[in-house]
Simulated scan of single mutants.
Amino acid sequence: MTPLRLRMKEDMQVRNLSPHTQGSYLLQVSLFARHFEQSPALLGPEDVRSYQIYLANEKKLAPKSIHVAVAALRFLYRTTLGRDWDFDRSIPCPKAPKQLPVVLSPEEVLHFLGCVESLMHRTILTTCYAAGLRISEATHLKCRGAIDRQRMVLRVEQGKGQKDRYVMLSPRLLETLTSYWRVTRPTDWMFPGASSDQPITRDAVGNACKRAHGRSGLSKPVTPHSLRHAFAVHLLEAGTDVRTIQLLLGHRSLATTAQYLRIATNKVCGTTSPLELLPHPTSRVAPPPAPEHF
């Protein structure tokens, strides 16, 4: 490990960035250095600009993927190397198109979950939908402390932003988790990986999701995060207020949760059009026919 890589890693550790973010940032900076075959400390704003053009035009990366590279390079040059650049100009973020997610109907969710063969994979994906969890939050549920039967809540430890929160535990999900535990008997992690002392990986769940999607025959794309979107939209369509959904999802901003208002069909399509509120015009009396002279 080079001194610069070690310094950047320590800078992220003292700022308590999540292990996933640390690994992602280190990978992006490593790819940047390999592209130029030089230490990033020897490169400047024009090199960063050239690299961004390469990512957009040659690698054909989506704006969201370029955002990760931009965040990593900004951290490196601003925090670790202490450069006093105008980062909005030196390392600009591409404008990402705002797209609405495709949401499964309740019937499609039920059909999809029925196509998941593995009991563990089906249970973890059911949990993502029933409690609105991110896949990283579901994979890190622990056998002890996660389930509170008295209060009927699930405890999510160190979710996105390194925040703990409680989410709903429906009776049906409790029954599902109890049945799963009786069969598998996990000891530490609710959903263990290849090694029992480590949780299942997100990639393993994602691959299981792809296989189930192929068997389901659904035309809509399905990922573990699709189930979280479905959770939010289905609650909104059932009448749950946006503030409650924000707390359940763990969103920092209410504006993020409010975006689901654009997807909830009963909120959009159920609203009366102003055309229906206009008074009906009175029927016109037809003029008398012209007299016939021949």
Rank of each mutant, 00 (worst) to 15 (best):
D86Q: 11
G114W: 04
L174D: 10
L43W: 03
L119W: 03
Q13D: 06
D148A: 07
D47M: 10
G161C: 04
R144L: 09
D11M: 09
V153K: 07
W181N: 02
A230C: 04
G161F: 01
A290K: 14
G270W: 12
Q162C: 13
L141P: 01
A290R: 09
L125T: 05
L169G: 05
G23C: 09
S65L: 01
I135A: 03
T123C: 03
K64D: 03
K64P: 00
R155T: 13
D203R: 09
Y129E: 11
K267N: 05
A130R: 11
P97N: 12
H229S: 14
K98A: 11
I91F: 15
L277P: 03
T139P: 00
S118E: 13
P101Y: 06
K98I: 10
V103I: 14
L113M: 09
L73S: 02
H111M: 00
P274V: 10
G114A: 08
R284V: 14
Y260W: 08
T80S: 14
T126C: 00
I147K: 04
T282H: 14
H229E: 05
C269S: 15
Y260A: 10
R34I: 02
I135R: 01
M8E: 10
V222R: 01
S196R: 14
R165G: 04
D164L: 00
A264G: 09
V233A: 05
L17G: 08
L248M: 15
R5A: 14
E157T: 14
E37Q: 15
R185Y: 04
S24H: 06
L61M: 15
L247D: 04
R202L: 02
M8N: 07
L248Q: 04
V109F: 07
A232M: 08
M152F: 05
A208I: 02
H229A: 04
C115D: 12
Y77L: 04
G145K: 03
P289M: 10
Y25S: 06
Y25D: 10
P3S: 04
G82A: 12
L154W: 03
D197F: 14
A69V: 14
G23R: 15
V70L: 01
G145H: 08
I200Y: 00
H234Y: 14
V68K: 10
A56W: 07
C269P: 00
A146R: 10
A130M: 12
L174V: 07
L235W: 05
T272G: 03
L110G: 10
P274N: 15
L26H: 12
H140Y: 05
P288R: 10
P199T: 07
S105V: 06
L173P: 02
L247T: 07
H225S: 08
V29R: 00
S195W: 04
T271I: 12
A71K: 11
P106M: 03
Q162F: 13
S24Q: 06
L61N: 12
I200V: 13
Q150N: 13
H67N: 11
L173E: 08
D88R: 15
H251A: 01
D47R: 08
L43V: 13
K163M: 09
L100A: 04
G159V: 14
D86H: 13
R262L: 11
C93V: 15
K60N: 09
